[in-house]
Simulated scan of single mutants.
Amino acid sequence: MDTLYWIFIGIAFAISFVALFYPILPGVLFLAAGFLIYGFAFSFEPFTPLFISVQILLFLSLFVVDYVGNAYAVKKKGGSKAALWGSTIGLIAGPFIIPVAGILIGPFLGAVLAELIFQKKGFKSAVSIGIGTVLAFIGTTLVKIVTQALMIGYFYYQVL
């Protein structure tokens, strides 16, 4: 039975990484699910107050990095809130409309179209903002990969 629990924990952690590329999935919740599966199946004893505090800070940082990174890139390129909303909608819809490539094309098109339609910006400016959102997505995704790996590594360090 222990092996089955570890498989479920591994699946939850794997889905948390898949969620980085399919943002409709609540990746952070799958990380927490992995921790909870361990706690209920084995023991909550390794989850010290320090462990819980560190994990909460890292959970919060995942949200902050995601939002601040994209907002900063859009602002730096001269984009509006419409571009931010457009890139977010594109990020969610893109992977489902165009599997694999949609994760990059979606936010780009969302930001570009939002700037062209709602802000009446020129094509060159809108494309620059769209590129900024894609670069921000790539950067924040790399940070989130490292953060999630640290969270999981710390979990294994505590429980093994």
Score class of each variant (00 low, 15 high):
P99R: 09
A93E: 04
G90Y: 00
L109I: 14
P95S: 08
L84R: 04
I103W: 12
A83V: 01
L84K: 07
P107D: 14
F108K: 07
G86T: 03
G79T: 01
L104P: 10
F108Y: 12
I103Y: 15
L91C: 14
W85S: 13
G90I: 00
G86L: 02
A101G: 09
S87N: 03
I92D: 05
F96Y: 14
F108W: 08
K76D: 08
I105W: 05
T88H: 12
G90F: 01
K76Y: 06
G106R: 09
G102W: 02
L104V: 15
T88N: 15
I97Q: 05
I103H: 14
G79Q: 01
G94P: 07
F108C: 09
G90A: 02
S87V: 02
G90R: 01
A93G: 04
I97W: 05
G90P: 00
L104R: 10
K77L: 13
G78P: 02
F108G: 08
K81P: 08
A93L: 15
A83G: 09
A101K: 11
S87Y: 02
A83I: 03
F96N: 08
G102N: 06
I98S: 08
A93R: 03
T88I: 14
S80N: 07
S87Q: 05
I103T: 15
W85D: 07
K76V: 04
G78Y: 00
P99G: 10
L104E: 09
A93W: 03
I105V: 15
L109M: 14
G79W: 01
A82F: 13
G79D: 00
I92N: 06
L91G: 15
F108D: 10
P99L: 07
I97Y: 04
I89S: 06
L109K: 04
P99F: 05
K81L: 15
F108I: 09
A83S: 13
K77N: 13
A83F: 00
A82E: 12
I103N: 15
P107Y: 11
S87G: 02
I98G: 09
I89R: 05
P107I: 13
V100L: 10
I105A: 14
I98F: 14
I105F: 09
L84E: 10
G106M: 09
G102P: 04
G79I: 02
P99K: 10
A93S: 11
V100Y: 07
G78T: 02
L104C: 11
P95W: 03
I98M: 12
A101P: 09
G102L: 03
K81R: 14
S87W: 01
F108H: 08
L104K: 10
P95D: 07
G106C: 11
V100M: 06
F108Q: 10
G86Q: 03
T88D: 07
K77H: 12
W85L: 15
L109Q: 05
G79V: 02
K81A: 13
I98H: 06
I97D: 05
G79P: 01
G78C: 01
K76M: 08
I89W: 11
W85R: 12
G106W: 08
G90T: 01
I98A: 11
G78L: 02
P95L: 05
L109D: 07
K76S: 10
A101N: 08
G90W: 01
F108V: 09
I97H: 06
K76Q: 12
V100G: 04
A93D: 04
S80V: 00
P107C: 13
G90C: 00
G79L: 01
K76F: 04
